[in-house]
């Protein structure tokens, strides 16, 4: 099941109360999953700024996973609703600009969904692996722009 290869590189932005805790539960339940995801904990999905996602791709992430509390479960009442609205606009924009939609994955994983967390991570890792590395965004920094 596990691959030794550290590729693909996947960054996850998760909220503290649901998905991070759900990942803790996966651990407590000793569920195994692929090791490619590196998680950054934030208090709430509301704190997840699209620039984080841009920066992760710029820095060479092959995939970005965003996850938080289900609608109605937000620890801060409405952070995930505001986040959802931003994501709608943002993921459509990225898609339009040619960043493959399958490299950015959004999910709701509650504190009790350790199993779902594992499934989401595994499925996304496999999907990104199948897509291969995403170096376009990272590498274009090496190309300086020459105008006129």
């Amino acid at each position: 099941m596990e691959n030794k290869n550290q590729d693909p590189k996947i960054v996850a932005f998760v909220c503290n109360w649901c998905t991070y805790t759900g990942a803790d539960l996966a651990g407590t339940s000793r569920l195994k999953y692929q090791p490619n995801v590196r998680m950054i904990k934030l208090p709430c999905t509301g704190r997840i700024d699209p620039v984080f996602i841009i920066k992760a791709f710029e820095k060479g992430a092959d995939g970005v996973l965003v996850s938080g509390c289900h609608p109605g479960d937000c620890h801060y009442n409405a952070g995930n609703y505001h986040a959802r609205r931003r994501w709608i606009m943002f993921h459509k924009l990225l898609d339009y600009l040619g960043i493959d939609e399958s490299r950015l994955h959004f999910s709701w994983v509650s504190a009790s969904e350790g199993k779902k967390f594992v499934d989401v991570v595994n499925a996304f890792t496999n999907k990104v692996k199948a897509k291969g590395p995403f170096k376009k965004y990272e590498n274009i920094n090496k190309e300086f722009v020459i105008n006129g």
Partner: peptide
């Protein structure tokens, strides 16, 4: 957050 150098990125 946004690189201001004259790179494509």
């Amino acid at each position: 957050w946004i690189e201001s150098s004259a790179t494509k990125r």
